[in-house]
Design a protein around this nucleic acid. Structure first.
Length: 122
DNA sequence: GAGATGACGAGTC
DNA sequence: AGACTCGCCATCT
């Protein structure tokens, strides 16, 4: 599997996250079978950006501790991510310093594996 | 090629 | 709980 396939697998997996649930970068990497590629999951999402078709529910992906990375001063997609999550009735706790966190006990989605994808060649 | 970077994770203090 | 360190690996300087 090369990087392009990895990215495709990431998109595919992210699109499987149920509405109102969240998972972590590392778990996506593990589902794909590359547990050491947690960072590249983020790379893939960044590469996809907001313009991809069909759109990616990237807001359902947070770090392993349940917190949302600021990734940039102020303007931050972090705030956008929180909004998108609350649209789906996912509670996002906000700390004093503006740190955003999701409760995995309630909203976490961590399957051991996924149902097979409907593709011609797998 | 070498060093720094990143939408990260796990372990330690 | 929070903060710090180290490991990870493709990309960018």
């Amino acid at each position: 599997m090369d990087i392009a396939e990895f990215h495709s697998a990431v998109y595919d997996t992210v699109r499987r996250i149920p509405i109102g649930k969240v998972t972590s970068y590392g778990h996506i990497a593990r589902l794909i079978g590359m547990p050491n590629y947690s960072r590249h999951v983020g790379q893939a999402l960044k590469l996809a950006g907001p313009d991809v078709t069909p759109p990616l529910p990237w807001h359902r992906v947070v770090s392993s501790s349940g917190s949302i990375s600021s990734r940039g001063p102020g303007t931050s997609g972090a705030e956008r991510q929180r909004q998108a999550l609350e649209e789906e009735d996912v509670e996002v706790a906000v700390g004093r310093t503006g740190d955003l966190k999701v409760d995995f006990k309630t909203y976490g989605w961590f399957p051991d594996r996924l149902d097979p994808i409907q593709h011609e060649d797998e």
